[in-house]
Nucleic acid binder design. Sequence first.
DNA 1: ATTATCTATAGATCTATAGATAATGC
DNA 2: ATTATCTATAGATCTATAGATAATGC
Lengths: 187, 187
Amino acid sequence: MTARTRSDRRRAEILRAALDVIAERGYRAASLASVAERVGLTQQGLLHHFPTKEALLVAVLEERDQWDAVPDRQWRLDLLASLVEYNAMRRGIVQTFSALLGESVTEEHPAREYFTRRYASVRADMARLLRAEYGERLPSGLTPAQAAPLVVAVLDGLQFQWLLDPDAVDMAATFRHLLVLLGEPDH
Amino acid sequence: MTARTRSDRRRAEILRAALDVIAERGYRAASLASVAERVGLTQQGLLHHFPTKEALLVAVLEERDQWDAVPDRQWRLDLLASLVEYNAMRRGIVQTFSALLGESVTEEHPAREYFTRRYASVRADMARLLRAEYGERLPSGLTPAQAAPLVVAVLDGLQFQWLLDPDAVDMAATFRHLLVLLGEPDH
DNA sequence: ATTATCTATAGATCTATAGATAATGC
DNA sequence: ATTATCTATAGATCTATAGATAATGC
């Protein structure tokens, strides 16, 4: 599981530092020097492992894809609620990707395509999950495809409210309120 | 309504250019020079009107507060849907404030406090609106205070999905699906 | 007179390249 | 031998200050 070669370990260290720095400053304002400093390297030393700043961002995004690679047959709505609960304990990671999402809507942002593709796929997965849970119609009459972007929007929107004011917003409890709105599945 | 003095007009021009540049690059990556260029000024000329970059940001945020100053007694849920529809025609503005929101969760961002305060107040307004519409319980059994952060989250979350892929997400239609989930008010 | 704008510039950054040296692993 | 890291540095930026000049409005 852990990186094998010396080089892989170094890359993993750098990636973790990059996640932290991006959480603190976003990608554009994150400097290679500040990432390098956290792992005891010079900025030029870091560039030996990732040849450009963008290569480092790409590696960050690829890592995220690995976390998310949960076989989606196993997903259920109540497990989604647990995921939200879990995220509420990993503020740094949530902040990293919320900051990246925010930046990604600006022009020529190197993560823009990534997020565009990702949301298309997340909406599709969510629709599938809802279909598995409810069949072709939710109790409200909405189709899974209609409800999917709503559920995804709630997940992201809640993260921003929570990051700005963790004491004012209980992400997990609020997400469960969405499940109330969606209605109880029949099964 | 329009700015009166020469100076006020100039400031208004600069503000509009700043909104555009922030939409394109975010605040941190927006340079004073690029804002100045759009109004035919040098960067130093711009600084005559806004003494620091942060002062310019503050002015941008204050302007937003003015737009939002709709007497909230007049708000109703279906008017919110029209607002979403309207926003779908103002991509630039939506992008400006989505980018700022995204950046604002990073440390020491000059808009962080602004957004924290703003969301507290937006949630309170939304709860008030829901109470006016539904009374103390929505059809689902949720209280207005429980549903408010959800509705706000949907508004923001949809904006990100729409900005990334306008053709894939119909903001207004999807928001109306949320209204279906909330249920028809009795009155 | 006052306000607006410009030129010049200081002082910080930032990314990336070139090439030397140090450390590691056959 | 190869990989990792460093020093040196080019070439772009960026914000902000200082002080001169141009334009505007009593």
